[in-house]
């Protein structure tokens, strides 16, 4: 086994170990133009890039900065537009001292952890099966992608019909099997479980495709080496396949965390955050504050705090995951 892992380490030096990965400031070549020419070229470069930069500023930077400004100001709607008052931390204070925000955060975190974990396991298993398939792989891939291709709101509405307590197929099946019609979306735990199930149904294909791409990139000789070393299938998976998949899994999980943390469509269509506030995600809470209460500054504060939390989670995840990859490489 060791020989296999050494082979891999030699092929992909970790970041920061070798000068080949990290590049410093560009050196001046002997034929570099004099200072004024360089400045002129830089100006021309900025000129050509400026339309793209303006678009990015308009659609990305401006909304983010505007939300930040909103969240730190007293804001009032008046005839003719928004009126900005004095700077304040009141919106954050109101949010961070309110139990409902913590409940929404707990639901969102729980949903993210459970759904991403299940999707990761099922997605990896599916990818392993797909990799071994021959001619039928294309068809099965296409079928698998159907849920992923569905628009979120439509998928949610479809499941709301299936879960409907009056005429839903899932409710009917439960009644046939267990003799009682379950109240799936009307009770907190079943409603949360249903939401995770729908998300897993919809998003597992995405994880499977990403992992499958990673599997196909693993060179065959490492499996041959493992076989020569007498490794069982189980050992090969844990010691060869999984370590090699870690970078691609990291990317898949990162995408999924970002998506799952912003969950809005499913609770909006299936439960409207209910029963009570059991399935109210931070996105639903933000929507209510912003678009139902018409509290623009409060809604912006929810958006900013959520963004900070997601960013923190992602950075933490990347740091932890990178360390694991490094450990694998050193083993």
């Amino acid at each position: 086994m060791r020989s296999v892992l050494h082979t891999k380490t030699a092929q992909t030096p970790s970041r920061g170990e070798g000068g080949g990965v990290r590049t410093g400031a560009p050196r001046k070549s002997p034929s570099a133009p004099p200072g004024s020419t360089a400045r002129r070229r830089a100006r021309t470069g900025w000129l050509f890039a400026s339309p793209a930069l303006l678009v990015i500023a308009a659609v990305t930077v401006f909304p983010v900065v505007f939300s930040l400004v909103l969240s730190f100001c007293e804001v009032r709607l008046e005839y003719g537009g928004l009126r900005f008052g004095s700077p304040t931390l009141a919106h954050y204070e109101a949010l961070l001292t309110h139990p409902e925000w913590y409940r929404a955060l707990a639901f969102t975190l729980g949903f993210t952890i459970v759904s991403v974990s299940v999707e990761l396991v099922l997605g990896t298993l599916t990818a392993l099966v797909l990799e071994r398939l021959g001619a039928a792989r294309g068809w099965i891939l296409a079928l698998l992608l159907l849920p992923w291709a569905l628009i979120n709101v439509i998928a949610a509405q479809l499941w709301s019909y299936l879960f409907n307590g009056t005429y839903g197929a899932v409710s009917w099946m439960c009644e046939q099997l267990f003799g009682t019609q379950p109240d799936i979306l009307g009770q907190p735990v079943p409603a949360m479980a249903a939401m995770v199930a729908v998300d897993v149904w919809k998003t597992t294909p995405f994880v499977a495709i990403v992992v499958l791409a990673g599997l196909m990139l693993i060179p065959g000789d490492v499996y041959e080496a493992a076989e020569i070393d007498g490794a069982s299938a189980w050992t090969t998976f844990w010691k060869v396949t999984l370590p090699q998949l870690r970078p691609i899994i990291a990317i898949a999980v990162l995408f999924r965390i970002l998506q799952a943390f912003g969950i809005f469509d499913l609770p909006f269509v299936l439960t409207q955050g209910g029963p009570g506030t059991a399935t109210q995600s931070v996105a639903i809470l933000g929507y209510r504050i912003l678009f139902q209460n018409l509290d623009f500054a409060g809604g912006a504060a929810v958006a900013v705090t959520t963004a900070v939390i997601v960013l923190g989670c992602c950075l933490l995840f990347l740091r932890v995951f990178r360390a694991q990859v490094d450990e694998g490489g050193r083993a």
Partner: peptide, 27 residues
Amino acid sequence: MSLNRRTLLTGALSAAAAGSLAGCGGK
């Protein structure tokens, strides 16, 4: 012309502030 991240951030903040003020023209 030196455009660095600080300049860009300042520009974005100014644009946001200008946008905010633009919405303040009361009727």
